[in-house]
Design a binder for these strands. Sequence first.
DNA 1: AGATTGATCCAT
DNA 2: TGGATCAATCTG
Length: 186
Amino acid sequence: MKILPRKFYSRPTLKVAQDLLGCFLVRKYRGKIWRAMITETEAYVGEKDLACHASKGRTPRTEVMYGEPGHAYVYMIYGMYHCLNIVTEKKDFPAAVLIRAVEIIDNPPLLNKERVGVRLNGPGKLCKFLKIDRKLNKWDLTKKDKLWLEHRGSKIKLDKIKKSKRIGIDYAQHCRESLWRFTLNS
DNA sequence: AGATTGATCCAT
DNA sequence: TGGATCAATCTG
């Protein structure tokens, strides 16, 4: 399976968010490898997007979004959950794709058979399951170590992508209306 | 609808 | 330094 190169991420975030659907998120943890298919994403695009953390400018927390694409932005939310984001666009343009849901697609050593095919819906849940926390913040996803992404096996049809409003951003005024949440229908 | 939980940010 | 806020999840 081919690893996604930096130039994949160095593109408009709305495109990357949709192209990530069906791709594989691979986690290597303590010598074991877990692989999951991405089924839901959300795009957060630039300082003008009031839902994007970078709308408040460059801070130590948002710094990674201003950096090179293809890195992980992992932050803690509500004191108990982590969310995994993929940095996109060119350097100095802050944007990222939030991974909202994945589906366990193979049978890695640590997983029971029952868990194959299970859909991990919710960014906090999938991070907990895949042992993703802030130690992986700023991680380079183009190296085949700890956490990386791979091309999807086959093409997906555009009509399988459902667009809807993003979740949990009621404060974002007009940006609430953007249909920047992408779900892969089975 | 409420409780949980702590990092982050901005105003003092 | 203090307090409001928060891209969530579970329970009932």
